[in-house]
């Protein structure tokens, strides 16, 4: 299957999920918590005309206050820890958090050191982990779909008030 076909099929599934839960679109704020920039290259790729994730209802927003989901990359460096927490606290509930990339998942090659926090879930609750170094754009879309399923579960268990 070509990349175009792959994206089309996944995108349509994603689109219907987003429509079901969010009505219109899923707003994502990306937070780089010390990544090497590899993950940002792939998140940006999702906005190019070949993937064009806006057509599936995914919207990257400029402020956490407009976001449904935080897409966090990097192992959470000591110097970014506070900024991540502030961003998390500025995001309205219910928040979805996706940890994108090997270092966001568990620190990756940077480990858990004086400067590297060893993964996003040590600082904020994470709903889905998207492995890869960096994850391909298809993997990011797949991860976002899993996160939306989680929100569905949260709502049905009445963990959050909608």
């Amino acid at each position: 299957m070509s990349i175009d076909e792959e994206i089309e099929i996944m995108g349509q599934r994603l689109h219907s999920k987003i429509k079901n839960i969010f009505g219109r679109s899923l707003s994502i704020r990306e937070v780089d918590a010390g990544s090497c920039n590899g993950c940002e290259v792939e998140v940006n790729a999702l906005s190019n005309p070949i993937y064009d994730m806006e057509r599936f209802g995914i919207h990257i927003v400029a402020s956490p206050r407009h976001a449904d989901m935080l897409l966090v990359t990097g192992p959470v460096s000591r110097n970014m820890e506070l900024a991540l927490l502030k961003t998390y606290n500025a995001t309205p509930q219910p928040i979805l958090v996706a940890a994108m990339g090997a270092c966001a998942c568990n620190g990756g090659i940077f480990g858990n050191t004086y400067a590297s926090g060893g993964g996003v879930d040590k600082f904020v609750p994470v709903d889905v982990f998207i492995p890869g170094c960096p994850p391909r754009p298809q993997a990011v879309i797949f991860g976002i779909m899993l996160a939306i399923d989680k929100l569905e579960q949260k709502i049905s268990k009445r963990e959050v008030v909608v």
Partner: peptide, 30 residues
């Protein structure tokens, strides 16, 4: 700057030489 300081130079001193190539690849992602 230095918000993304991850202690890479220190990390180099603490990993094997083969792994160090992987670390070098991840200093600046692109």
């Amino acid at each position: 700057h230095f918000y993304t300081h991850k202690g890479i130079e220190k990390q180099f001193e603490n990993i094997s030489i083969d792994k160090a190539v992987f670390l070098a690849e991840r200093v600046s992602g692109d």
